[in-house]
Amino acid sequence: MEIIKPLIQYLAVIILSPLLLGLINRVKAKFAGRRGQPLLQLYFDLYKLSYKTPVYSRTTTWLFRAGPVIGLSAILCALAALPFAGRPGFLAFDGDFIFLIYLLGLGRFFTVLAALDTGSSFEGMGASREVQFAVFSEPAFFLALAALSKATGKLSLSGMFLALEPASWQAAAPALLLLTAALFIILLAENSRVPVDDPNTHLELTMIHEVMVLDHSGPDLAYILYGAALKLWFFGALIASAVLPRHSGSWLYDGAAFLGMMAVIAAAIGTVESVMARLRMIKVQYLLMGALVFSILALLFQTGR
């Protein structure tokens, strides 16, 4: 079993993911006519937070302290199984994407419980919204992957992305376009981006994800912010792998192209955030159902051939 290449890939992901958020913020700043935060701002924040002494609410229990640890572990484990530039990660087996989605669910469960642990109505509100949107985004996610599985005939993520070639795009363009669109909408929802949520807002009553972690501080908050950056990479990597069919055999060349694509996706997210307002909270359900419909259509288009 190969160790070196997956290890380098994994390290690259772990080190580079906070850069994505920096890129998105820079793109948004450009649209707003500002210079923007430094690209490496999240790294500085993580360092600062790691060595701060946290404050814990007297209402909280072990769950509050465990939540960030389990959330970050879940996404780190998921990244170990995620393909990089079409190459498999450490773990690759039939059905690994099911495991990955449920790992995200594990992170969600403990984040929600940690939020409810504080006994604050703000965080309960955020938790309620988070679980509500999961009911719509998970079917969309599964069906998008089902469409991809049908298009490539494989059952593991790396298998699917390895089997995607420029020819497959020509043959199954509508299905692949639809499922990419569905995955992009799910990315915006799962990572609390406009139009689902505004990551820069200070208004607790409108937040979903940020308000769930309102009472966290110190290393816990560092874990949460880092986990959020990794989660953004996770979804971005799925889209990048779907959009960039592998062609050359060179690991370095494909890796560089993949990283370039991730930067393009970050820029796309920044652009979407800058040109539209966020949706009313009730309308987010309909956006996610739209993603579900895209996935179903993608699957049906594939069935037709």
Binding site: S50, Y51, T53, P54, V55, Y56, S57, R58, T59, T60, T118, G119, S120, F122, L214, D215, G218, P219, A222
Partner: peptide
């Protein structure tokens, strides 16, 4: 390790 043996402070939930 990050906590470095420091005692976290206790307070009420943010109200």
């Amino acid at each position: 390790f990050f906590l470095g043996g420091r005692q976290p402070a206790a307070g009420p939930t943010w109200d």
